[in-house]
């Protein structure tokens, strides 16, 4: 099992949506992107990545199409749907609210800054 920081439930969905907002991407790409952007702090194992992708697709937030990858191989590309984009907006808002609130409770953010 690859070492990974445990993610809050629902957070993985948010990360995937945010990543796909940049453009269509295959599963490997999504995992790599999250790892890079988080400076290797978040490693998404395929064991949680693919179920999450499927779950989001069934919900209709993302869609998948078969395409050709950078190195000319058939791959499944995921992209955000209109619903997914709206969803991302609301998820981001509620994430901001939540993290600000938690920050306040933990005393990590000075009052003045908020």
């Amino acid at each position: 099992m690859p070492p990974s920081t445990d993610l809050l439930q629902g957070t993985l969905d948010l990360l995937i949506l945010r990543t796909l907002a940049l453009g269509p991407m295959h599963g490997w790409g999504v995992a790599q992107r999250i790892q890079q952007v988080s400076k290797n702090a978040l490693q998404i194992g395929q064991g949680s990545l693919y179920p999450a992708l499927y779950r989001l697709e069934y919900k209709g937030w993302i869609r998948s199409d078969w395409g050709i990858s950078e190195n000319n191989r058939r791959a499944k590309f995921y992209s955000l749907t209109a619903t997914g984009r709206r969803r991302l907006e609301t998820e981001l808002e509620s994430w901001d609210r939540l993290s600000a609130a938690i920050g306040l409770v933990l005393g990590r953010i000075p009052e003045a800054a908020s």
């Binding site: 099992m1 690859p2 194992g45 395929q46 064991g47 693919y50 179920p51 499927y54 779950r55 069934y58």
Partner: peptide
């Protein structure tokens, strides 16, 4: 090794199905 159990992943993806 990094990848982990393929069958388990398959199973979990399957469980997401409506």
């Amino acid at each position: 090794i990094e990848f982990g159990g393929i069958e388990r992943t398959r199973e979990q993806c399957h469980e997401q199905r409506p």
